[in-house]
């Protein structure tokens, strides 16, 4: 290790905390926002989470991609625990079949 881990931990803690409050600090200076900004803010969970997960559709392999599709379909009907469990079963099963 070239740098002191404690220095890194403190610096990254501060950097992360700044990202967690800065959006509110900036936006709360504006009284009301344009309806398009409003729509973009409403879309934050969907847009950001999709962008987070999309690379794992192709970066891992066909078994993992298929398991993500299974999880998305199960999520149409069932809650989170069942969705994650079904996805885990699917990834183990597809890996056994495909690899």
């Amino acid at each position: 290790m070239t740098s002191d881990p404690w220095f890194l931990i403190i610096a990254c803690t501060i950097a992360t905390y700044v990202t967690r409050f800065a959006g509110h600090t900036i936006l709360s200076r504006f009284g009301s926002v344009h309806f398009r900004v409003e729509a973009a803010l409403e879309a934050v969970p969907v847009a950001v989470m999709t962008a987070l997960v999309a690379p794992s559709l192709v970066s891992r392999g066909p078994a993992e991609a298929a398991a993500l599709v299974v999880a998305a379909l199960v999520a149409l009907k069932l809650q989170m625990t069942a969705t994650v469990a079904a996805g885990l079963l699917a990834v183990v099963a597809f890996r056994a079949i495909l690899y």
């Binding site: 729509a39 409403e42 891992r60 989170m80 996805g87 079963l89 990834v91 183990v92």
Partner: peptide
């Protein structure tokens, strides 16, 4: 146990919770 893949599955599930949002 597929545990290395739990996080993408978890994010799929979180995203799908918003499937009735506009657009």
């Amino acid at each position: 146990y597929g545990l290395d893949f739990i996080l993408p599955l978890f994010f799929v599930s979180l995203t799908m919770a918003f499937r009735k949002s506009s657009n």
